[in-house]
Design a binder for these strands. Structure first.
Lengths: 212, 212
DNA sequence: GTCTATATAGGGATAGAC
DNA sequence: GTCTATCCCTATATAGAC
């Protein structure tokens, strides 16, 4: 019995050191990006010293990798669950917009982070979700193609519709600082605005594609 | 007559040194972001040495500022032109989507850049466009509010509609690497897809808000 | 496992020759 | 204006005591 690293003898009884590091690193990487993040800042935010970060994760790159591969996997798994739900297309879109927006709100740093790091280090983060992205895409494409061929919705390019749906959900989360500036929101107003979108965006999409 | 800096005696007869630096810096900042960009890389790409960058722009921050304040101003000025065009709302939206998409394509690095740097250094880049953003917003808000009150379109929250329009235009440009990965595009396929969107997105929006 | 102290490199910035 | 050489701080990473 030599592996008792979760003894938690310090002042954070319910959080192991590793968890503290991961939490702090997540926040700092989110705020500053990979290149802008400083190991010192992560250590400070975790209430530890730099040496501990290296003890647990060896390098900054490995720490980054550990966090975001897990975050991205979890995020895309939940996304897949939303797409695989068994509903007619219009109800599925309604369900998707509402729950995807909720998921994005709970992981509000992920969209801007992926957009940003995909531009700066595409090769470094592609592999975090490339395996999971295709099943989501094919399921969604199939649903739309079927609905079109059954005459349930207007004829549309399924790829364009998917991009429209995703754009309407992701953009207001990814561009929060810009939206907040432009529409002069405080935090509450912003969150209310997004809450309203859960219903409004679904209506906006369905109005556009439904057969009159 | 001691100011003859545009003599262009070197192998780039039509580009001053300052222009070479700005061009290289723009590309590198775009690829790597402010924090990830290296003065050495900019110098290499411009075919010069680091000392020249400091000679012309003193610091990395000032070089960054010089490029993106100009880029952002130009971008938002053109955006304002699109909003101020004198057309009925539905035609204006059609005109806007087509021309804004074209503008975004020509400045394809700006959306992801603004999203990314607004998260990492909001205070550093807000001032680049804060003065220009409001006139655009109020004009657009006014147009939509008028159209709603005249019964020309369905009743909608003008702010939600604006965010929808912008999201549909910006997202596919900002998230190009993600889209390319997900839809397995090569460069030509991606550009064709965006070209198609110029018409499709306008139809998508108008279908949703027009009175039947 | 956790800390302090330190090695080493990288990168922004400057000095000074031409 | 342009270059080479160098300064010096910052940041990642490691060594070693406890």
């Amino acid at each position: 019995m030599d592996n008792i690293k979760d003894l938690n003898t310090d002042e954070n009884p319910d959080k192991s050191t590793e968890k503290l590091i991961l939490k702090a690193a997540k926040d700092v990487f989110h705020r500053k990006g990979l290149a802008g993040a400083r190991m010192q800042e992560i250590a400070d935010e975790a209430g530890l010293n730099k040496a501990m970060l290296h003890y647990y994760f060896r390098t900054k790159d490995k720490l980054f990798e550990a966090i975001f591969s897990e975050e991205c996997c979890g995020f895309f798994d939940k996304l897949a669950d939303l797409i695989n739900v068994d509903l007619p297309l219009l109800e599925k879109i309604e369900h998707f917009v509402e729950n995807y927006t909720e998921l994005l709100l709970k992981n509000s740093y992920i969209p801007a982070f992926i957009i940003s790091e995909m531009h700066h280090n595409p090769e470094k983060i592609k592999h975090m979700f490339i395996d999971r992205i295709f099943s989501v895409k094919y399921k969604f494409l199939g649903d739309i193609t079927t609905a079109v061929s059954l005459g349930l919705i207007k004829p549309v390019d399924p790829r364009q519709l998917i991009v429209n749906i995703i754009a309407l959900c992701i953009f207001p989360i990814a561009a929060r600082p810009m939206l907040t500036l432009m529409l002069e929101f405080n935090d509450k107003e912003y969150l209310d605005f997004i809450e309203t979108r859960k219903k409004e965006v679904a209506k906006f999409i369905i109005n556009s594609i439904k057969i009159n």
